[in-house]
Write a protein that binds this DNA or RNA. Structure first.
Lengths: 248, 248
DNA sequence: GGTAATTTGTCCGTATGTATA
DNA sequence: ATATACATACGGACAAATTAC
């Protein structure tokens, strides 16, 4: 079936007016016809016209004031896309189902190779937890590496039993608050060590996701590196622009 | 009788229902009385009840579905990890520098292969623009495919001269508003066609980013597929938790 | 699995309130 | 103060979607 919701009179009216506004029939600052006139022109009731205008107002195309009419407002600056909302749960969704199996758990000192992989400073000491996440009997969903600030290293003992994201654990245990998450995603060829764990061919494509969690002090609490075989994972997320925020 | 000016009936109804919801009279998951019942209880018309419910829906307190009634929805997240803000510019940052070179530009009908690649419905018609982005004389940064809703296909002629993201162009030209962006990222082996364009080996790892842009009508305005050779790209973004947004 | 009933969604016409040029 | 245009409000009707039988 045609997915076009072109039915509904008020959507048709809204679409027509929208087009006329951008075509310059009603330039910025000008006044749209009155609701009564729009009723006559489109041969619809005032309810329908108002419902159409409501859409245009929701999109910040026009503004209405009693007696002054409905005015075409200038489009907010192109760079004001600043307020968009996404759920951090999207970011973490993958972690919910699969269970973490820990293969090693030890303090490490960052060398040049690990600096490249984590962005942490050479010579600093971190709790490294390495393992994989699997979903039942199938091959692992991803290989996982945690690098945890030594100040919070006590969480290491809780990881075996824990499923899901780690940073709420740190927040609860130490009373700190994670205020910033930086994520980097890259496509990489699978190294020989990981190929064995993930049961894929060496050199095949994999998705490497590195996340850095910062506290309100600006300190790095944790760095996570997940490596997903290409065939078993797609990372997805949705952002929604918050409405009624653009003006001003 | 000095009645308070902003004492509109629908606001009174909305206020009352809102209080009852947070007081637990209508717990999460339960169904509100039908609009007819609310009309009787408050002795107002259905218009007034619907206007009140619209406010509650705007606040994400309830959701309405035909026949199912109006349900009290769970708060976004009890633990307040739900409201995080990022800039859509982060999402698009990569596109700013490199210049797009267009190789082809034609209407296409979605077949099974394209459905897999774009998520669009088989049989629908879209403007397909294919090319690559390069930064000076070096090898291309990424291969780019746009699939643009035929309603907005007129932007195709502007693309050659244009650099940067496309969807503001659509917003300006047609007055629609992009309210939702969905992004999927996967690691893929490079196909033979793309290997030639990108000047990398067939089968080497690449980052495939698919983005779907939806308008406030819920219609898909555009789908973009970018393929980045692994060595030339890392996708990064930062999210910051927003302050006092959880309550309500 | 098809049908009926229920509930929201859309649309109409009309009337009155309210803010403002 | 007045007229005007949007804002709120009423009542009735049918359509569409979904649940329940």
């Amino acid at each position: 079936m045609t997915v076009t919701p072109a039915d509904h009179r008020y959507l048709q009216v809204a679409r027509t007016l929208r087009k006329e506004i951008v075509d310059g029939v009603y330039p910025v600052g000008s006044q749209l016809p009155t609701e009564q006139q729009l009723c006559e022109r489109f041969e619809v009731s005032r309810y329908t016209v108002r419902e159409a205008l409501r859409r245009l107002r929701d999109d910040n195309l026009v503004a209405s004031r009693p007696r002054a009419g409905t005015l075409v407002v200038p489009r907010p600056e192109t760079n004001s896309y600043a307020q968009d909302v996404m759920s951090i749960n999207d970011l973490l969704a993958f972690a919910s189902g699969a269970q973490l199996t820990i293969e090693s758990n030890a303090m490490v000192v960052i060398d040049e190779h690990l600096r490249e992989r984590t962005g942490l400073s050479v010579g600093t000491e971190w709790l490294a937890v390495r393992g994989y996440r699997a979903d039942g009997t199938a091959a692992p969903v991803c290989a996982t590496e945690y690098y945890i600030n030594r100040a919070f290293a006590a969480v290491g003992r809780l990881l075996q039993r824990h499923s899901g994201p780690i940073f709420p654990l740190i927040e609860d245990l130490f009373g700190v608050s994670i205020v910033e998450v930086r994520q980097e995603i890259a496509a990489v060829p699978v190294t020989s060590e990981l190929a064995e764990v993930l049961r894929v061919e060496v050199g095949s494509a994999a998705l490497e996701m590195q996340r850095t969690y910062k506290t309100s002090d600006g300190e790095v609490a944790q760095v996570t590196v997940n490596t997903h075989p290409s065939s078993r994972y797609r990372h997805s997320m949705t952002m929604r622009r918050v409405k009624g925020q653009a003006g001003q």
